[in-house]
């Protein structure tokens, strides 16, 4: 009598254990599935964009990248003007954004009284949170008329794009640059000051060189953000799918005059034409997506490599 009860109890225990074991295993399995799904999305994205763009890519990638004529209705897909547009607008944004961004990063990490720094940081967070379409709207209603009235032309230009983008990439530059300046060991700074160097000499000759790989990372990530931006750029650059040119006798003025011309970026090209494209034309836009994808991957990978190098040092 007693022994059967014990046996029953034992059986129940084994049953309970098995149940727990199964539940644990199925929970782990479920978590593993979610992880697999998250990790496979990037592969799905690459796969779908590549397979949709392949029909046009296979006709000659080099011809496509170096081609200067974009006549989608005649089946001519040269994207050099758009690549040039993307690079021009983004590099212009860096030219304006780097001094402002690095200056603010130095300000926050070295000069600002803590109370002021605590006011500036949340403000930068707000700046980072403003949707790009609002930046574009601001660009359309303020920056474009400003350029039109001061420098002439329609105002819809690469320069307008660079100005709007410069503001948009500031939070990226400032956050990463500030972090890397702060992570410079205190001893370096104190050593320099103890040797009689002034505050600025210490910053410029000791702190900034020590933080240089972090600063470069900040700039590269900002470049990636700029090249990938769509809405804000599309709303202010005029979007002509041609290489910008300018006629002038003063060669020094030429870059500025070219900057005042409308351009179309890779991103805008996709956003503008995807709405009505079909067949080979749509495939060509996916091919633009591939070029953009690879460009961004190369930019971000170089930033990651820099971070790794810094860590290993």
């Amino acid at each position: 009598m007693e022994s059967t009860l014990k046996l029953k109890e034992k059986g129940k225990n084994i049953y309970l254990h098995q149940q727990y074991f199964l539940r644990e295993k199925s929970f782990t399995g479920l978590l593993f599935l979610t992880t697999l799904l998250s990790a496979s999305i990037i592969i799905l994205i690459a796969g779908f964009v590549f397979s949709e763009g392949y029909p046009v890519i296979k006709n000659g990638l080099v011809k496509m990248i170096t081609g200067t004529k974009w006549y989608p209705l005649e089946g001519v897909y040269g994207v050099w003007p758009m690549i040039f547009g993307s690079l021009m607008v983004s590099l212009g944004a860096l030219l304006i954004g780097i001094p402002l961004g690095l200056g603010t990063a130095i300000f926050l990490s070295e000069l600002a009284p803590p109370k002021i720094a605590d006011l500036v940081r949340p403000a930068l967070q707000v700046l980072a949170g403003i949707p790009s379409v609002v930046f574009g709207f601001f660009g359309m209603t303020v920056v474009v008329p400003l350029i039109r009235n001061t420098l002439g032309g329609s105002g819809y230009s690469a320069l307008s794009g660079s100005l709007v983008l410069a503001i948009m990439i500031l939070p990226t530059i400032i956050n990463i640059a500030e972090d890397s300046i702060r992570s410079v060991p205190k001893e370096l700074k104190e050593g320099s000051l103890a040797l009689g160097a002034t505050h600025w000499q210490t910053i410029s000759k000791v702190v900034l060189p020590a933080a240089s790989s972090g600063l470069l990372t900040a700039i590269i990530l900002a470049l990636g953000r700029a090249v990938g931006e769509t809405m804000a750029v599309m709303m202010v650059t005029g979007n002509t799918p041609l290489l910008p040119t300018a006629e002038t006798n003063y060669s020094l003025l030429k870059p500025l005059l070219i900057w005042l011309q409308p351009v179309r970026t890779l991103t805008s090209n996709i956003a503008i034409e995807m709405g009505y494209a079909s067949g080979e034309h749509a495939s060509a836009l996916f091919a633009c997506g591939i070029i953009l994808f690879v460009l961004i991957m190369v930019i971000n990978a170089s930033a990651t490599l820099l971070i790794k190098k810094k860590v290993s040092r």
């Binding site: 990037i42 990938g228 769509t230 991103t267 956003a271 996916f286 961004i296």
Partner: peptide
């Protein structure tokens, strides 16, 4: 790091 237009595509 993927730009939003690629997510769109």
């Amino acid at each position: 790091g993927i730009p939003s237009i690629i997510f769109g595509l």
